[in-house]
Amino acid sequence: MYDGGKIIVGLIIGIGLFLSPFIYNAGTAAKPPDPQLTKKAKEAKVCVAPKAYMRESHFKMLDEWRHTVVRDGERYYKAADGKIYYKSLQVTCLDCHSDKTKFCDQCHNYLSVNPYCWDCHIAPEEKK
């Protein structure tokens, strides 16, 4: 090897960076999130849309709601099962899912999602 020392040090640093997730995660529990439903949500049994859609795309629905409410003044949403919902982040979503830290934030912290909504919208107070 010519300049072998330097090349091997560089190689170890480079490969080490690529393999860092293996090292970083080795000690942690890394539990998947476990969103908790409130009593109210449990009684309702169903969400606004099917669970799979909500898990994948609930923010798309929120975006649609906010556009149609703020721009077109349409405040009611007819779900696929015929139920009518008042289109609102605070009044509807967070009525059923009032324990935001045990529900929304569970997933959001897991994936480092920081919705800017709470700059203006107010999350319900939670009893500890």
Partner: peptide, 10 residues
Amino acid sequence: HFRFFMEPVP
């Protein structure tokens, strides 16, 4: 993409 690779997210 490290938000998928590491838990907790750095």
